[in-house]
Amino acid sequence: MSFTLATWNINSVRLREALVARLLTEEAPDILCLQEIKTPVDKFPLDLFHSLGYRYIVARGQKGYNGVAILSKLPVMDVGDKDFANLGHARHVAARLENGVTIHNFYVPAGGDIPDREQNVKFGQKLDFLTEMRDWFRWERPDRAILVGDLNIAPREDDVWNHKQLLKIVSHTPIEVDHLHAAMEAGSWVDVTRQDIPSGLLYSWWSYRAADWDAADKGRRLDHIWATPDIAGAAHGSRILRPCRGWEQPSDHVPVFASFDL
Rank of each mutant, 00 (worst) to 15 (best):
V160Q: 05
S12Y: 08
D217L: 08
L24Q: 06
R16V: 06
V79G: 10
Q249C: 12
T25E: 15
L32M: 13
R144A: 09
P243F: 02
N9G: 09
S251P: 02
I103H: 02
K218S: 02
I70K: 00
L147M: 14
A234F: 08
A90T: 11
T25K: 06
V256F: 11
A95G: 12
D261F: 05
D135S: 12
A154Q: 07
N152P: 00
L48T: 13
D261Q: 09
L97Q: 12
N11M: 05
N105R: 04
H92Y: 10
I225M: 02
M184N: 04
G124L: 08
S199D: 13
R221E: 01
T102S: 12
D158F: 00
D196P: 04
W206R: 01
L147Y: 14
K164T: 12
W139D: 15
R242S: 08
K82I: 15
T39H: 08
N120G: 08
H172Q: 05
D78L: 07
L23P: 15
G111S: 05
R55A: 04
A232G: 13
D191N: 14
V93S: 02
D47E: 15
L24W: 10
I197T: 07
R117N: 03
T173H: 10
D83E: 03
W161Q: 08
V160G: 09
T25G: 05
E118L: 06
E140W: 03
V101H: 04
L202N: 15
L24P: 12
L180C: 01
E27F: 02
H163N: 14
K38A: 00
T25Q: 11
I37Q: 08
D214Y: 07
H50Y: 13
R209H: 13
E26N: 06
V108N: 12
V254E: 02
L130F: 09
A235I: 05
L167D: 08
I31W: 02
D223P: 00
Q62S: 06
D223F: 04
D252M: 12
T102G: 10
V76L: 06
T193H: 06
S199F: 07
P174Y: 11
P198F: 03
P45K: 01
W205G: 00
D42P: 04
A85H: 11
R16S: 01
I70A: 07
L46M: 11
K126M: 14
N162E: 14
R194C: 00
Y107D: 10
I31G: 03
F106H: 15
N152V: 02
V76Q: 11
H172S: 01
D42K: 03
H224S: 10
L166D: 07
V41E: 05
R134K: 11
D217T: 00
